[in-house]
Amino acid sequence: MDKHNPVGDGVPTNFANNSPVLMSRNEIASLCSKAARGAGMNWGLAEEAGHAAAWLAARGLTGPANLAVHFKAAEGQSWQNVCPQVEAGQWQTRTGTPLCPVALGATLSDYALLPGTSFTSNGLKTGPVSCPLLVLPFLASAATAIGNTIKLSWDGGTVGLTTTGEVFGDTGELSATSITQIHIWTEESGAAHTQAASMAPIDPETLDQLSQLAMKTTVPPSDRSREGAGAGTSDND
């Protein structure tokens, strides 16, 4: 029995022409969640990683690719090394290693409605963040929760998230940024120019990296496991 490619929760195993693959949002979320778990994230955070990557892809952004890059960069790092230390005005890791964007985003979202900790007009500065594009989906849901626009800036540009959870600004530049310190603050909601986008295709290299990680959540087959899952009766009746 051939090992089934986990991309194959969607993508052909004989995929050979090396061109980008258009996947559904559901497939991206599923693949990226599995990859995140395979990369060592806990299940709850892995769900959020999948959700975030799919949210970005649905807006034409390279969420899955950034996630794959982050997993490579953060390989072997424990939660304690990549999660933020929550202090007024300044969040960074305990040791100065880059923040995991999913851990940072999830924690920002968790603290969104707690006064004085994350989203203020004065803003919050962070230590270096790995693949900061991945923070955007969390800021989007936080913007909806707090009812204010949230802005994120770095030395290469600014991106905003509206209260309806849409994104505007220098997203292309942020996609290409592998690590940077960021500044996050809130603004009264105003008019913003958001662009409709179609689902971003996934490049084969990203697909391969994520699939290999996703495979780490699966168990190699054995005759015992194969038999145990069947009906135990003939299907030729």
């Binding site: 190699p220 194969r226 145990g228």
Partner: peptide, 26 residues
């Protein structure tokens, strides 16, 4: 509960007997 490599089929293992406990599904 675990997921098999084979077509990602969900399966149910015996904790004391089967491989894959470290990959248990939630």
């Amino acid at each position: 509960w675990y997921v098999s490599e084979e077509k990602l089929e969900p399966r149910l293992g015996e904790r004391a007997l089967d491989d894959g406990v470290d990959r248990e599904q939630p």
